[in-house]
């Protein structure tokens, strides 16, 4: 699975949605994820990609890791995976 597919699968599972309902422009709010649900997603991303995501629930708008929508999350993780491989 690609990073995109894995991210969407994890989000869909957490949000109790079909993966086809998770689109690049979906936001955490529009998917109905609360803060705990999203922290669980972050943990699942880290486990799936063996990486550390700089996310702090006290700083959701912080620019360390962009979570504004699904596309931003995917590209952020792609970057982390690429950095880890380098």
């Amino acid at each position: 699975m690609s990073v995109k597919e894995t991210v969407i699968t994890i989000i869909a599972e957490q949000a109790l949605l079909d993966p086809s309902d998770v689109t690049p422009d979906s936001t955490i709010d529009s998917l109905g994820l609360d803060s705990m649900g999203f922290v669980e997603c972050i943990f699942a991303f880290e486990e799936a990609f063996d990486t550390q995501i700089p996310f702090n629930a006290n700083d959701p708008d912080g620019n360390e890791f962009d979570i504004s929508n699904v596309a931003a999350i995917i590209s952020g993780i792609e970057q982390l995976v690429q950095d880890n491989a380098a």
């Binding site: 922290v39 972050i42 943990f43 702090n56 629930a57 006290n58 700083d59």
Partner: peptide, 20 residues
């Protein structure tokens, strides 16, 4: 750490730039 509510630099209660 797992809960993602910990600050990494300082504890700044009530400050707009608090990080946990």
């Amino acid at each position: 750490e797992g809960l993602r509510v910990m600050a990494k630099t300082a504890c700044r209660p009530f400050s707009a730039n608090r990080k946990g």
